[in-house]
Write a protein that binds this DNA or RNA. Structure first.
Length: 112
DNA sequence: ACACTGACCACTG
DNA sequence: CCAGTGGCCAGTG
């Protein structure tokens, strides 16, 4: 292990995700720019797994599907965390995902 | 330097 | 609807 720094941007955005909200890999990648792609966000979170500072459970794929649940301690950890925050999860899918979706592009930018 | 892999996304058949 | 393929970027052997 060594790498670090590179993920700073991604981790920063993930930490900013409000309680009870979720976002997607693509949204984060889009916010950071074309430098990183959705996949890049994924491998970064892989490095963050185990770090409480980063609510990776709030990051899902573009379908609102908990694709990363398998990387958590348990397959139910991710869904439990979300449900605990008030996010309804059914069949590993975030209910009303579009309503709970938190877009960093809208939240972090936009002066008005 | 090369090949393979991966918490993705989109297109094509 | 499901399977396959390409593109994307970085890590590891």
């Amino acid at each position: 292990m060594k790498s670090s720094s590179f993920s700073a941007d991604v981790l920063d955005v993930v930490r900013l995700i409000p309680y009870g909200r979720v976002t997607t890999y693509g949204a984060i990648a889009a916010y950071l720019g074309s430098k990183r792609s959705s996949r890049t966000v994924g491998w970064i979170l892989n490095s963050t797994k185990g770090i409480s500072d980063v609510p990776a459970h709030r990051v899902v794929n573009r379908n609102g599907l908990l694709t990363g649940k398998k990387h958590f301690k348990s397959l139910t950890t991710m869904s439990k965390l979300l449900i605990n925050e008030g996010v309804n999860v059914e069949n590993d899918l975030v209910v009303d995902f579009k309503q709970l979706f938190w877009d960093p592009n809208l939240a972090l930018s936009l002066t008005s």
